[in-house]
Write a protein that binds this DNA or RNA. Structure first.
Length: 679
RNA sequence: GGUGAGGUAGCUCAGUUGGUUAGAGCAUCGGAUUCAUAACCCGAAGGUCAGGAGUUCAAAUCUCCUUCUCACUACCA
């Protein structure tokens, strides 16, 4: 936070255009950034707020294929959906752009070309799976096969969605191309890498200047730099036909890696918004650049993107990256694929005109320092006992009294008592308190301060009791009501960053145009003699029925999930194929943990044929001492393989449930000796 | 296993460079009140600051160990 900055550029993580926005996204980065920007605008600072849809990358091509439409159709659908719901929710982007725009393709392409011409990239030839039928390299997501860990037959080349393991495409058993169904072959391909290893000293120096970043952010960056071998070169191009084409020779069929292309989206969005002076926001040392993101994006925004910008030259680097942690929902991780989420577009339909309730709840419980949990019960409580009872109630009682006593005309303040002066002093101190919390990215604290202003109002009314005094001292009541109205007016100003819809309603009720931040330090924004409008309730109570409905809805998707996780049957095989496998009953003679691993047990098995060593990934489910003497089924003619330096000579057959938990399978009658064949 | 972030009242979280009886909101209980959406206002109760050891006149705060949660990462034939 240097005082020399003349302007600020705020970016919010580009949401990936393969699904709608949910509350996790909002709490993670869109709401905090919006609060920050609204506050800065209210202060009259020069600030731009850019965002857009991230529309490239493999998952979108897969989704398109599945639905039989083009990738462009997919992103068109979600781009519109996300843009609309952000807008309706009051996320006040100056521009919500998209990476399939021409201007972005041009910008990203030029950016790559500049780095290429400067000789920044290293070229590397690697072996990748290639589908010879459709003449195309296969991204990890385009390869399916049997998961080597849980035997799920529908694991992807990068991940098994059933057991959650991260995989390499080459690990899959019976790998298959999803494009043609054929067996892929390994083929050499050339890609361009960003040599992060060589850039490490520069990145280190950059991070050293920013030890003031949030501890979760700085800590994670440091762990990347300090870990074992330090940073590793990372491919910035992919063999794919959806994305920004690589603008060099010999690069047919290659596009920029989404993580190269996406952050450049911030630049192209700025360009689109301000074609004439966009460079001011990206290249002037007096511009402060801030990236709002979720914790999953830290490495890209704090290491890779800055590295790209440094190597390009010209550009400024982020001054801060206030990343939030994750938001859970009713105790479970939010998951798009499991439909465990509160979707913004659905919320907006089901809770019409209640944007501010969600904004308030998410901000007050934002995962600023650790993962947090969103519950509907909490949502209800926050609405009923804070928004309704404290803020809404204060405004309501003030306006009702004003209409009752003065027919809606603001009375003039007469002589201030000691008590009044104290309240006025506190009133004018709020803007700075809230501001410093926002400047420090402590939005929960800022929000709590905002509510304290409403509390101050409630207390003032309770202490002065104008409804009693009106019978004995009318003059005094005028002063009291004037002060209560000033508090209401200043509330309208300082609540705007957090709950803008409420702010608008408040100004409308007060019958005045919206005031800017600096006015909130004044205690006479409402002139005496001014007539206010009729009062209406700011917030309505949320009843149990509504909350139960939401909880039931989540229960339904939980049930739906429990059913669908059963893996579909594998394609038909032949008896010949099956009989190639030599499976026997065996007994575990010895078992011990493989050091420095979480999942591995080293087993000695009596197979009836011999005694052999097998390494198996079952340590999470069985303790070594419990399984000695256990009878198991073992595949004995599997090619041996070294795991953690130990040669594993076979594979224990395990049953795996939908959670990826494992269980031995063995003969159910006692008199089956080791070495009995399983057929 | 490695690395990072966390573990503070029933719940959600503050606790700045170690300094008198550990704070706030919500929930609970009691009181007062009626202008207000039975809301507000006042008060009470509620914590071996994950556990253990150490440094210090003094530790929630510093060091070490153990343990639990989350994230990244390695191992799973």
């Amino acid at each position: 936070m240097s005082p020399t900055y003349k302007r600020t550029l705020v970016t919010s993580a580009l949401p990936y255009a393969n699904g709608p926005v949910h509350i996790g996204h909002l709490a993670g980065c869109y709401l905090p950034s919006d609060i920050f920007v609204r506050y800065k605008r209210s202060k009259g600072e020069d600030i731009l707020f850019v965002c857009g849809s991230d529309e490239h990358g493999v998952p979108i091509t897969i989704k398109a294929k599945k639905e039989g439409i083009t990738p462009q159709d997919v992103v068109n659908k979600y781009h519109k959906m996300m843009g609309d719901s952000f807008k309706e929710f009051g996320i006040s982007f100056d521009i919500y752009s998209r990476t399939s725009n021409k201007i972005h393709h041009q910008t990203a392409s030029d950016f790559f070309r500049t780095l290429y011409d400067k000789g920044v990239f290293t070229e590397q030839v690697t072996e990748q799976y290639y589908d010879d039928e459709v003449k195309q390299f296969l991204a990890d997501r385009y390869i399916t096969g049997t998961c080597p860990k849980c035997a799920n037959p529908n694991a992807y080349g990068d991940q098994c969605e059933k057991c959650g393991s991260t995989l390499n495409a080459t690990e899959l058993i019976d790998a298959k191309s999803t494009l043609s169904g054929s067996k892929p072959i390994l083929k050499e391909t050339k890609n361009w890498f960003l040599p992060l290893d060589k850039l490490q000293p520069k990145i280190q120096a950059y991070l050293d200047e920013h030890k003031d970043w949030k501890s979760n952010v700085y800590g994670q960056c440091k762990s990347w730099l300090d870990s074992g071998d330090g940073l590793q070169p990372r491919a910035m191009t992919r063999d794919l036909d959806w994305g920004v084409p690589v603008p060099v020779k010999d690069a047919e069929g290659k596009v920029l890696y989404v993580w190269f292309d996406a952050p450049i989206g911030y630049i192209s969005a700025t360009k689109e918004l301000r074609p004439n002076d966009w460079e001011l926001y990206w290249k002037d040392k007096e511009t402060r650049l801030i990236h709002f993101i979720g914790k999953d994006n830290i490495v890209f925004h704090c290491i890779i993107f800055p590295a790209m910008l440094m190597e390009h030259g010209d550009f400024i680097l982020a001054d801060n990256v206030p990343a939030n942690e994750f938001l859970n929902l009713e105790g479970d991780k939010i998951s798009t694929s499991r439909n465990w989420a509160v979707w913004l577009h659905e919320y907006l339909l089901e809770f019409e005109d209640k944007q501010d309730v969600l904004r308030y709840t998410l901000c007050s419980n934002a995962p600023e320092t650790k993962d947090n949990d969103f519950t509907w019960k909490d949502f209800q409580t926050k609405n009923n006992s804070e928004l309704v009872a404290i803020l809404g109630n204060f405004v309501n009682r003030t306006l009702v009294l004003t209409h009752k006593f003065y027919n809606g005309v603001v009375p003039s303040a007469d002589t201030y008592t000691k008590e009044d002066l104290l309240v006025l002093e506190q009133l004018s101190s709020f803007p700075d308190k809230i501001a410093s919390a926002i400047e420090g990215f402590k939005f929960r604290e800022a929000l709590a301060e905002m509510m304290n202003l409403a509390r101050l109002g409630n207390k003032y009314l309770a202490d002065t009791e104008p409804w009693k005094l009106i019978k004995t001292d009318e003059n005094r009541v005028k002063t009291i009501m004037n002060i209560a109205l000033q508090i209401t007016c200043n509330l309208a100003i300082v609540c705007e960053p957090f709950i803008p819809f409420t702010s608008t309603k408040l100004f409308a009720m007060l019958n005045m145009p919206a005031l800017k931040w600096h006015a909130a330090k004044q205690t006479s924004n409402l002139a005496s003699g001014h007539t206010i409008n009729k009062d209406e309730l700011l917030f309505a109570k949320i009843e149990d029925i509504e909350i139960e409905a939401q909880i039931n809805k989540l229960q339904e998707s939980k049930k739906a999930n429990a059913v669908t996780v059963i893996a579909p049957a594998k394609p038909e095989t032949t008896f010949d194929e099956f009989s190639k496998m030599d499976i026997r009953t065996g007994t575990i003679l010895e078992a011990e943990r493989v050091p420095k691993t979480d999942k591995l047990l080293k087993l000695k098995i009596d197979t009836g044929i011999d005694q052999r060593t097998v390494v198996s990934g079952i340590a999470e489910y069985y303790k070594p001492e419990e399984i000695i003497g256990q009878q198991v089924s073992i595949l004995v003619n599997l090619a041996p393989r070294k795991i953690k330096g130990i040669e594993s000579q076979g594979m224990i057959l395990m049953a795996s449930n939908s959670k990826g938990e494992l269980s031995f399978i063995n003969a159910s009658k006692p008199d089956f000796n080791n070495g009995s064949e399983i057929k």
